[in-house]
């Protein structure tokens, strides 16, 4: 791996993965591959121990119900209000959106985007494609599974990638989202973007 191992300075950065349901281990593996400590977050108190949070792929409807049932809703909003970085992949992107195209109410409502769920169709329409991502020289191997896309990105949102004119990756301040699943590939470049955000946020916090 030629990439910078972003976590090897100071004490290791701790990146949490919301551990209610979905592709949790896959994210942990990538986090560890980049030299950070991966923490599976099963209880809201654990949020205080981590520098950044990943909302993984899975079923957004299920995750939302478990977020409510186990008292994660306000603590995650607070985590974001403290400018701690959050990375939502697929279902995670649905969870952080301010608006969903089928209903005006989003879930956590942390990012100024409107997301369309299952936007590419059902599972038989799931696909892989090479994607041009802003700042990456070589296209990124993106895996879209019953994936959403961003129908509308409001001002202050940086679009990082589009697929056939639909926005599939974006960033706003301390929040990063992808409609695809970086954790299902061996390519850690996308997670590296998040690790950099976490690194910057720690620097700001200590200054």
């Amino acid at each position: 791996m030629i990439l910078l191992k972003g976590c090897e300075f100071m004490n290791r950065m701790k990146i949490g993965v919301l551990g209610l349901q979905g592709a949790i281990q896959e994210h942990i593996k990538q986090i560890e591959a980049l030299g950070c400590t991966g923490v599976i977050i099963k209880h809201p108190e654990q949020l205080e121990l981590i520098d950044g949070l990943i909302l993984p792929g899975g079923e957004s409807t299920t995750m939302r119900k478990l977020i409510d049932r186990y008292g994660f809703f306000e603590p995650i909003k607070q985590f974001s209000a403290n400018d701690k970085p959050i990375f939502g992949t697929c279902a995670g992107m649905v969870l952080v959106a301010k608006e969903l195209s089928e209903s005006h109410d989003g879930h956590l409502g942390l990012m100024d985007i409107c997301v369309k769920r299952n936007a590419f169709g059902r599972q038989v329409e799931s696909f892989e494609a090479k994607l041009d991502v802003s700042g990456m020289e070589i296209p990124y191997p993106a895996v879209f599974i019953r994936a959403p896309y961003i129908e509308k990105a409001y001002t202050n949102v940086d679009v990082l990638a589009t697929y056939e004119n639909n926005i599939v990756a974006a960033k706003q301040d301390h929040i990063l989202v992808s409609a695809f699943h970086p954790e299902l590939t061996g390519d850690t470049r996308f997670l590296q973007l998040f690790v950099e955000m976490v690194k910057d946020s720690r620097k700001t916090a200590t200054n």
């Binding site: 349901q21 979905g22 899975g58 696909f127 994607l131 895996v143 699943h181």
Partner: peptide, 22 residues
């Protein structure tokens, strides 16, 4: 940029998204 449907990654990945669920 071509779309590849029904690949092993996409088919297995769908099941990975169901992990920890009922």
């Amino acid at each position: 940029m071509e779309r590849q449907l029904g690949t092993e990654v996409v088919k297995r990945g769908m099941a990975q998204m169901q992990k920890g669920g009922v």
